[in-house]
Simulated assay, not measured.
Amino acid sequence: MKEAAKYIIKVDAELKDGVIVPEIPYEEVMRLVNEPNIVIVKTGIPAEKLTKVIEGTRAWAAETPLAEGPDTFDNNQHKQRLHIAKIQQAPQLFHDHTFDAMLDLDDEFKQTLLEVFNPMRGFWNNLTGNNEEFGIHKGAPYFHPQVTHYPLGGSFFGRHWHPLNPQKVGMILALNQYGREYNSGGTGYVINDHIVETEGYQDMGDMILFRYDLPHWVSPSSFADRFSWDDPAGRWVSILPFYNPWGTPAAKDEPQGWKTQIQNAKAATSEAAV
């Protein structure tokens, strides 16, 4: 474990029988996330499995029509997102592939995705004390596995935020290599009114962990490159959200999250001491 920059901590791990095992206890990893810090875990997932996810996703998308209507959260779809979120007013431009019904995919592609998403799922369960499986559970939270492509030439995701629960910890796994497949664009955060940019700190196979209520964004890829939805170049990541699509959405006003909780805890401690 080492501090790579202010509020950025890198943790080594290895993949043992499909389980991501960090060099420090899972409880310690969560403590670091909640302080808060941005924790970058070197998962040990082989590069060939990560590359296969990109290739498999592109092949699947080539045979699957683009989704145009509102998300239903009960299927497998891909969408070229180019709009401004109504509640948070967060602009976005990226190609999203969402596999809510991943277990219904053909066996080969499903296995390709599970080679990556199963270790992520197990890691999240170990961090949060849950034992969740993949599958759609209407009326309750469930996993929404996503493979996201940020093409060269200006793709981005504006500053936004999420409720802390039930996700607790966000996870962003790098499927390709900064400095090779892309040279600009990374996820940024606000911690203690300090801007934390992770561009250049995350390598292929590294997974960023962050407290889920931290304001964050994806910085634009360089406009020096020509934008194309069809060009596979650019940043590829897999993420594993866990939420109830029909539950309470994120608040319109940006939350203070951990900061307010810390202030409330201090106030309660002071009152108890009087």
Results as ranks from 00 to 15, higher is better:
24 I>P: 00
83 H>Q: 14
229 W>A: 09
179 G>K: 04
119 P>I: 06
241 P>Y: 10
119 P>E: 08
262 I>C: 07
200 G>Q: 07
6 K>P: 05
27 E>P: 01
85 A>Y: 14
175 L>N: 01
80 Q>Y: 10
186 G>K: 01
172 I>L: 14
260 T>V: 15
18 G>P: 05
152 L>K: 03
140 A>D: 12
32 L>E: 06
21 V>C: 02
250 A>L: 05
195 I>L: 10
178 Y>S: 01
50 L>S: 05
84 I>D: 12
113 L>R: 00
103 L>G: 08
112 T>G: 02
104 D>T: 15
141 P>N: 14
77 Q>S: 09
56 G>R: 00
206 D>A: 02
154 G>L: 04
268 A>P: 07
24 I>E: 00
84 I>M: 11
194 H>A: 12
240 L>Q: 10
52 K>L: 09
167 Q>H: 10
53 V>N: 02
9 I>Q: 05
84 I>L: 12
168 K>T: 10
44 G>Q: 01
89 Q>T: 10
183 N>L: 02
222 S>I: 06
180 R>S: 13
144 H>S: 07
183 N>Y: 04
229 W>I: 09
68 E>F: 11
131 N>Q: 12
164 L>T: 07
245 P>F: 10
184 S>F: 00
8 I>E: 02
138 K>H: 13
183 N>E: 05
119 P>R: 04
190 V>A: 08
198 T>N: 05
99 F>D: 02
41 V>E: 00
255 P>S: 05
157 F>H: 03
14 E>D: 13
158 G>F: 03
222 S>R: 06
263 Q>V: 09
125 N>W: 08
88 Q>V: 09
122 G>V: 08
233 A>V: 08
52 K>M: 07
225 D>Q: 09
98 T>H: 02
122 G>N: 14
14 E>W: 13
166 P>C: 09
69 G>L: 09
212 Y>C: 05
151 P>A: 05
113 L>S: 01
2 K>S: 08
177 Q>G: 03
224 A>M: 13
235 R>H: 01
205 G>W: 00
188 G>C: 10
224 A>Y: 12
45 I>C: 02
135 G>D: 11
218 V>E: 01
214 L>G: 04
85 A>L: 15
28 E>T: 03
207 M>F: 10
264 N>T: 12
59 A>D: 13
87 I>T: 15
93 L>I: 06
151 P>G: 04
